[in-house]
Design a protein around this nucleic acid. Sequence first.
DNA 1: TACACCATCGGGGGAACCCCTGATCGCGCC
DNA 2: GGCGCGATCAGGGGTTCCCCCGATGGTGTA
Lengths: 216, 216
Amino acid sequence: MSHPIRVLIVDDHAMFRAGVRAELGSAVDVVAEAADVDEAVAAIAEHHPDVVLLDVHLPGGGGAEVMRRMPPTVVTDGPRFLALSVSDAAEDVIGTIRAGARGYVTKTITGPELVDAIRRVSENDAVFSPRLAGFVLDAFAGTIEISAVDEDLDRLTEREREVMRLIARGYAYKEVARELFISIKTVETHMSSVLRKLQLSSRHELTRWASDRRLL
Amino acid sequence: MSHPIRVLIVDDHAMFRAGVRAELGSAVDVVAEAADVDEAVAAIAEHHPDVVLLDVHLPGGGGAEVMRRMPPTVVTDGPRFLALSVSDAAEDVIGTIRAGARGYVTKTITGPELVDAIRRVSENDAVFSPRLAGFVLDAFAGTIEISAVDEDLDRLTEREREVMRLIARGYAYKEVARELFISIKTVETHMSSVLRKLQLSSRHELTRWASDRRLL
DNA sequence: TACACCATCGGGGGAACCCCTGATCGCGCC
DNA sequence: GGCGCGATCAGGGGTTCCCCCGATGGTGTA
């Protein structure tokens, strides 16, 4: 990459755009600026920047809206989006990444760090503060919703949980019986309790229930 | 954090475990080692480490299996998992993160870097090489449809795929028949083909198969 | 001591599941 | 026209699932 990275700055505050431009200095080539979603989309179409510095809270739908407006063909060879926001809220981070951003940094970042982040994003790497990356991982792994639904599971006895786990994994009653050294009839009894307590009606629903809660 | 971080090393090669232990030196407290999934689960229960260094390719189901075996209560206050693998394949990375790992580094990492990664993971931050983080983001944003093993699915006919989808979602044969305006017997025929082609033996396995591939 | 709860079993039965061997019809291909 | 393949359907049968009824013994508790 001999030529400087071409950057588009999208933020609704002119003052902030000027600050970013000054901080970046000559390290990158700021080809344009935009103050709202429409301007950003137009600027991308006109200038084809390598990296778009995107404010998350933006008039006209927010930064995610800009990425959603990109034609599908641009996904692979279009610009890389780097979110630049005052917010470190999980929903902002997750929403922005889901929309297609390759990175997310807060506005507390220093100039040299931002230059480095832009460079890395332009090479298709991901840039994150570790804490923010954790939000994305949690959302991805589905860990977030786990804590809320324990009450149902707590109502199961220890033995019922064992049976439930094996059943949800696809074990036949017979196999569960063999595994736990009890009779098939006992397995059936436990399963009845499990289904009743969880308000489910079949082992198939149980499989999905357990799968959704990552109990497998 | 005044006391040293308590670490469990999980890898099937004793030589490699010794190497890691030597590289870590006195920076952390290696409380135990494990060579397969069962040993790892037992060691976690016994020693309650802060961080588990987890090899991805492991006898007994792979590193992800270890995390899946954790009781749900451990999700919030249990150990943090840091995957340590020779593989930089997207499916390995994504699968491991989906199972609950807080980080993924390759075995080319240096000792000091590994120490730093362990420290950051223990503080609930996420640790990644930027390239690998990109895989996760792509999967999260839906850019790539995790198409690791399509060959199996491609062998199904259009109709078989429809039936498979409904069955995997928990529909009874009768309900599938009503939904697709065909007879139960036809549903059975399609299901036979599906199970045979996918080399599965019951609708329960099919549910897990489809669930693993996010076909629901 | 009674009571509640849990884990363990049994009989019986209807529905669902899975497999087997068939069959017919339409479609594309050589 | 044959030939393969996909989609449709049928009968029959063995297994599994889920529920109903019941029972016994152990444990903790009011």
